[in-house]
Design a protein around this nucleic acid. Sequence first.
RNA 1: GUGGAUGUAGCUCAGCUGGUUAGAGCACUGGAUUGUGAUUCCAGGGGUCGCGGGUUCGAAUCCCGUCUUCCACCCCA
Length: 470
Amino acid sequence: MSFTKARTMPGVMELLPLDQIALQNLLDTVRRNFERFGFLPIETPAIEFSNVLLTKSGGETERQVYFVQSTGSLKQGEVPELALRFDLTVPLARYVAEHEAQLTFPFRRYQMQRVYRGESAQRGRFREFYQCDIDVIGKDALSVRFDAEIPAVIHSIFSELKIGAFTIQLNNRKLLRGFFEQQGIADNQQQMLILREVDKLDKRGPGRVRETLTSADFGLSAEAVDAILAFVGTRSSGHQDALAKLAAIAADNESLRVGVAELREVLELVRAFGVPETNYALNFSIARGLDYYTGTVYETTLDAHPEIGSICSGGRYEDLASHYTRSKLPGVGISIGATRLFWQLQQAGLARRGQSHVQVLVAQMDAAELPRALGLATQLRMAGINTEVQLESKKLARQFQYADRAGIRFVVMQGADELANGTVAVKDLRRGEQFAVAEAELIKTLRVEIEQSRVMGDAALPAAAAVVAP
RNA sequence: GUGGAUGUAGCUCAGCUGGUUAGAGCACUGGAUUGUGAUUCCAGGGGUCGCGGGUUCGAAUCCCGUCUUCCACCCCA
């Protein structure tokens, strides 16, 4: 008999239960903070009509879209009618256009779902992954103040995740465009091409970016490249410094003036939102590849792990749903790639295994006493303690081994000795200690132990390693 | 899509210039008598050496093809 190789396609993440718990803890933290800031949940289907998803056809997205078709409706040579979503922003645009009449604006939604991209396989690159998005969509207009609220949400999430110091890098597309105009680079396409290169500044260093920009493809003079590199090299340290850097810009065109003004307002409000000044900074090389950003753009990085790159990014767009409706719907939002983030944290040693949700295993000491063990388990469950019972008769050693491997910390035993004197034995597998308590005290004792275990579980870790602790 | 690597047990790998029945560590299963795990000791299961073809008396080893996975570019979370 030959077996089919049991395997998943490359680019998908599949986890063992304790790692799954760790990922879910991460997702729970994100969701909790989204809700704390007043964002409401929606879900959209994984499958959408192809023409809805591919409004801006051509380019990267089309290459990466998975088309979907039922076997019955296969038609040779035609573009399938359906496709898997490749992000959550396009479905949001469709959603808002479709339900506009029933939504209240500004519409604040969060969405945490999986998206699909036909990427070629590479480290940390997934074909199926979670995106956690928040967006605020305005009707006709949306104040730049909302741009300042986003970093407050980011700060709240990453503080709670405890993955170390992080910086929310801020920039503004209008500022960049204005600057390019000032340099005599007026062509929109040309600006985009330069933006893409500039965006790689922190990853590749100024040397290689200079090399690319001075190449024949760009047709820029050495002086122009110098000016660009000097400008986009701007980084601020601290709030006052950021304001000073903005003040130093000689704005001689409208776009540049507006960009500076927007950034200034965002900075002031970010501070007022209570984000510590160590957690945000100007970075004029942040451009974001996506075409639709028009104003503020964000990227968040971990100070101690620059190799991870951006862990959360987004920005402002002027018209979200122009392909679906005449209404003008500006918005601002961010996306966290939770699957990749989790993977990166694991690689960097910042994620640890989750703890089993099973808090207690009631051992089976004597097959005849199984009903008694079941009754004990029921009592524990009614007290809110997640409990599993040893249902098969096995040597006690095996029962301990099972609990240990499954990550269950406490084993409760009530054998002949304990029954005789009305006690229950509790073994703490992590500490390797065992003690006896009166049966009436069991629940109270376990609650204390479990609470202690929860608190100690966090405290025992270095500050930067507690990510996914429950 | 372009360029470069890779493939031996579930995992990490060894296997010299071709030579008997392809090895190790970890993992797994069982045992070391009565109610105590992760440590120790003993035993055991597990591999068409990615696949196809060629050279040879003989191929995991050499050659060709093919597939796979991975890395860089592109793009992105």
